[in-house]
Amino acid sequence: MELRTDLALISDWIAKGSHLLDLGCGDGTLLAHLRDTCQTTGYGLEIDDDNIARCIKAGVNVIHADLNKGISDFSNDSFDYVIMTQAIQNIHRPDLVLLEMLRVGRQGIVTFPNFGHWRARFSLLFFGVMPSSHALPSEWYNTENIHLCTVRDFEKLCYQLDIEILQRAAVDVEHRTRWPMRWMANLFGEIALYRLRSKPVKRIFPK
């Protein structure tokens, strides 16, 4: 099975034998791949019944859960990494989920479609319509993507939440990465990937 490049990139970021939690794990492809290549253990959280069956078929431990109801069933630091690939834009409160991810896991890995991509900017600027693209195929009225953000928005949120960005990558929908994406991720990256952790020392005064 060919792995999506963002998933392949993630597997380079993960230490062998880690314990993982994948929020919105879909059909379990990433967890199955990481288990087979990096000897990882862990669980996927998923809400869709068909995907739950697919995870079980792939031998992935899957827990039926609604991310909007939180992940309070998990205790602090119980995972090496908490991963969320292309799900943050569907969640009611991405900020709270990010904080929860870094409470439950020592590090977090997040990927999302970048709304700052030039094509999205172009369609709004020149055609005056809400962008829909390969990475964001739905129309504005039926999309599940309720919290779209740009690379810059995301990094601003991380700064506000005292989250440290350990690693960043940007790829296109074919999940290739080329020099313009590395050079100007917010303009040329269609999908952004981040590895995060809580800043060791918290600020005394909120920003």
């Binding site: 669980y43 739950i52 995870c55 827990i63 069933d73 998990f74 205790s75």
Partner: peptide, 21 residues
Amino acid sequence: SREIVKALLANKKPVSYAEIK
């Protein structure tokens, strides 16, 4: 049922959970 699942998760035991509509 989630109480059972939670106790297994806390032990890092292999478990899958489905809540059927």
